[in-house]
């Protein structure tokens, strides 16, 4: 797995955002919609392994930085799910050969970006779960600092402008979107779940829930299972 990684750019709201590319020369490309917030960090290595494995099978991939994440200069407190969806649509326009979108965890909340692309999902997450986990992390760190916070206080703070949750500046629009966001109904979408998951999907893949780990990690078994399922889905 020695495929070269390249950085491409795509325009969004007057900013140039980065997009990691592997296998630019291939005829087919999959747009990967990353998990959101800290889950993205925990799963990035696993996703890049998927990109390298697909390159070896002549499939190109693109993994965009969402505005306000990674190297992006876009103000984080101004991002929203709507803005991320628009950014992904702009990114897709820079990939004329791309007809396949694969989204991961919270990425499934922002993946309905094109009517002419086929969709694949891995372990879709509800917005409310991502939000509750971030609020709990903030409450725990406040507690260690001798402060008392609860979810009601954080919700009120968010409504007044923005709230810092687990290192993320969450603006009021993003906060209220996450409270209700669920992956759009899976019409014609292939959904993959982990074998030990409580959720039923179209296919159960081996591997571990890296998004729950204390530290980022790789999982080659999972990367291989995802790459194989994407290949069979694309040829079906």
């Amino acid at each position: 797995m020695s495929a070269a990684l390249e950085y491409a750019r795509y325009p969004s709201k007057g900013h140039d955002e980065l997009c990691l590319r592997v296998g630019v020369q291939h005829a087919k490309t999959i747009l990967l919609v990353p998990p959101l917030f800290d889950e993205m960090n925990r799963m990035r290595r696993m996703l890049v392994d998927v990109m390298r494995l697909l390159d070896a099978r002549d499939i190109g991939t693109a993994l965009p930085d969402l505005p306000g994440t990674n190297e992006s200069l876009f103000p984080q407190e101004q991002v929203s799910l709507v803005l991320w969806r628009e950014a992904l649509a702009h990114c897709l326009q820079t990939l004329p050969e791309c007809r396949h979108v694969a989204s991961f965890r919270g990425g499934c909340l922002i993946d309905n970006i094109s009517d002419d692309s086929r969709q694949w999902r891995f372990a879709p997450a509800k917005g409310s779960m991502l939000l509750r986990r971030m609020m709990r992390t903030r409450i725990a760190s406040d507690k260690e600092a001798g402060l008392s916070t609860d979810m009601a206080k954080l919700t009120a703070e968010a409504q007044q402008g923005q709230v810092n949750l687990a290192g993320n500046s969450i603006g009021s629009a993003m906060f209220s979107e996450l409270q209700d966001a669920e992956p759009a109904p899976p019409d014609d979408i292939r959904t993959a779940q982990l074998k030990n998951s409580a959720q039923r999907g179209d296919v159960a893949l081996p591997g571990s829930a890296l998004w729950l780990r204390a530290e980022p990690d790789d999982d080659l078994l999972l990367s291989q299972a995802i790459a194989n399922d994407l290949l069979s889905w694309m040829s079906s």
Binding site: K126, M129, R132, R133, M134, R136, T137, I139, A140, S141, K143, E144, A166, A198, A209, W211, L212, R213, A214, E215
Partner: peptide, 18 residues
């Protein structure tokens, strides 16, 4: 050691979901 306060936040939320 892996079970730090962030992991506990994930554990509670995951149990809620499952």
């Amino acid at each position: 050691p892996e079970l730090d306060s962030m992991a506990v936040a994930g554990l509670l939320t995951e149990l809620e979901d499952r």
